[in-house]
């Protein structure tokens, strides 16, 4: 997987997390649920792999959410 593709997934995860950061409820749980609902397993696997490798550039909420997907 290219760095460009990974950066795109990180950006998408961060966007989702940022949106749920302000919607009330537990942002990490909501973000994780959203990703599980709408992302194909291959994409989820990639972002989980990215977190395992350090999770560079993922926001704290996005990191917490991806951790729930692992």
């Amino acid at each position: 997987m290219s760095a460009e593709q990974m950066a795109k997934l990180v950006m998408m995860a961060n966007q989702i997390a940022t949106s749920f950061d302000t919607q009330g409820g537990d942002p990490a749980t909501l973000t994780a649920a959203h990703i599980k609902s709408f992302w194909a397993p291959t994409m989820r696997k990639m972002i989980v792999g990215h977190l395992t490798g350090g999770g560079t550039d993922l926001t704290p909420t996005a990191q917490a959410a991806v951790r729930k997907l692992a």
Binding site: M1, S2, Q5, K8, S37, F38, W39, A40, P41, T42, M43
Partner: peptide
């Protein structure tokens, strides 16, 4: 039982060769 790829995801995966 799992969601599939959306159009931009398909194109990303196409460019990635998967």
């Amino acid at each position: 039982p799992e969601p599939g790829l959306r159009i931009p995801n398909m194109l990303d995966a196409g460019a990635e060769g998967t």
